[in-house]
Simulated scan of single mutants.
Amino acid sequence: MSLKKAYILVFIIIIIDQVSKFYIKTHFKLGEFVEVFPWFQIYFIENEGMAWGMKLPGNYGKIALTSFRILAIFGIMYWLWDSVKNKANTILIVAVSLILAGAAGNIIDCVFYGRIFDTSAYGTVAQAFTGQGYGPWLEGKVVDMFYFPILKNSAGETIFFNAIFNVADAAISVGVILLIIFNKKIFKS
């Protein structure tokens, strides 16, 4: 796979991720959901920290996390470039491209969304480009929306797969799963 094709894949995933997040952010109130099927909902939440809502301690935790993510992107970009240069297995190139796209999609939220959008709330829909951003650069919240409450107990509480995620998260997960499943094929030596 060529570097051009890999970057096209990355670009397409970032566009899908950002369009879906922008739509949800400007059309859904925080906490609002639409049931598509009993086992699938579009459910708008915002994640202020790391995966599954974990946060770093202190006032500068979000800035440190976002800065680390930006540095990590350069490492992933090098990994992709090196994999293409060395004619690595196509599965590896696709996996790294997915991870890069997902990481970039969530970094865009962290870096820019605090300045682009006003506050999302339970009673109102956020507006974009009003000049009244909800936070400083590097402290934006990640928009999540896909919810698959596959298994519920008798009280209606989700007991299997209660994570709410976005396209970027899915891309990262699929990339990592590809690396795990095809580990022996990808890393022969």
Rank of each mutant, 00 (worst) to 15 (best):
M1N: 09
K4M: 11
K4Q: 13
K4V: 15
K4S: 14
A6R: 08
Y7I: 13
L9V: 14
L9H: 05
L9T: 15
V10L: 10
I12Y: 08
I14G: 08
I15V: 14
Q18E: 09
V19P: 02
K21M: 08
F22C: 09
Y23M: 13
K25F: 03
K25S: 07
H27D: 07
K29P: 00
K29D: 10
L30F: 05
G31V: 08
V34P: 00
V34Q: 08
E35N: 12
E35L: 10
V36T: 10
F37L: 15
W39C: 12
F40A: 14
I42Y: 06
Y43E: 05
Y43D: 09
Y43L: 09
F44Q: 09
I45G: 01
E46S: 03
E46A: 02
G49P: 00
M50T: 12
A51R: 06
M54Q: 13
L56V: 08
G58T: 06
G58W: 00
N59E: 14
N59I: 03
G61V: 04
L65P: 02
L65D: 08
T66D: 04
F74A: 12
I76Q: 10
L80R: 11
W81C: 07
D82A: 15
N86A: 12
A88Y: 11
A88V: 06
T90V: 13
I93W: 04
V94W: 09
L98I: 07
L98G: 12
L98F: 11
A101R: 05
G102V: 06
A103K: 10
G105R: 08
G105T: 03
I107T: 14
I108N: 07
D109E: 03
Y113Q: 02
Y113A: 09
Y113R: 02
F117M: 04
T119L: 13
S120G: 06
A121N: 11
V125C: 02
V125Q: 04
A126Y: 01
G133E: 03
G133R: 02
Y134A: 01
P136W: 00
W137F: 15
W137C: 07
L138Q: 07
E139G: 07
V143R: 00
D144F: 05
Y147F: 15
K152D: 10
A155I: 02
E157A: 14
E157Y: 10
F161I: 12
D169Y: 09
I172Q: 04
I172M: 11
I172N: 04
S173E: 05
L178I: 10
I180Q: 03
I181R: 04
N183R: 15
N183C: 11
I186D: 01
F187D: 06
F187M: 07
F187E: 05
K188N: 11
K188V: 13
